[in-house]
């Protein structure tokens, strides 16, 4: 029984700020179900005794010292902004 329905895809796309048309919704429903299918296959592996990990790399404790370095000039920082005003990124009004 498939776990991914069109409703799931609609919810996920809404959360991801993506607008999908009916065709795309159907296509991604199928794709995501295939991804889960693969996960179900992985789930069959016996992982008893293998510690849980959040990362594939055997690295840990990677850090830097608390040292300030100069960042971007403001003009550079704002170069990618869709719109600029008063040295700030200008975006559609946010209401709270």
């Amino acid at each position: 029984m498939p776990e991914i329905t069109e409703e799931t895809v609609k919810k996920i796309s809404r959360l991801a700020n993506l607008r999908l048309d009916a065709d795309e919704t159907a296509r991604f429903t199928e794709h995501l179900e295939k991804v889960l299918e693969y996960m179900r296959k992985l789930n069959q592996l016996d992982t008893t005794g293998i510690p849980q990990t959040a990362h594939a790399l055997p690295k840990q404790n990677v850090w830097r010292e608390d040292q300030v370095l100069p960042g971007l000039d403001r003009s550079e920082a704002l170069a990618g902004a869709p719109d600029v005003r008063d040295d700030c990124f200008r975006v559609p009004r946010i209401i709270e």
């Binding site: 850090w63 830097r64 608390d66 971007l72 403001r74 700030c88």
Partner: peptide, 25 residues
């Protein structure tokens, strides 16, 4: 002043990687 203490990492520009400040820990 606004946007004078920023870099590609904290602006979330593509291709950047965060590195933890040890003093935070």
């Amino acid at each position: 002043p606004p946007n004078t203490q920023v870099c590609p990492v904290c602006l979330g520009l593509p291709g950047t990687l965060p590195v933890l400040n040890r003093q935070v820990l």
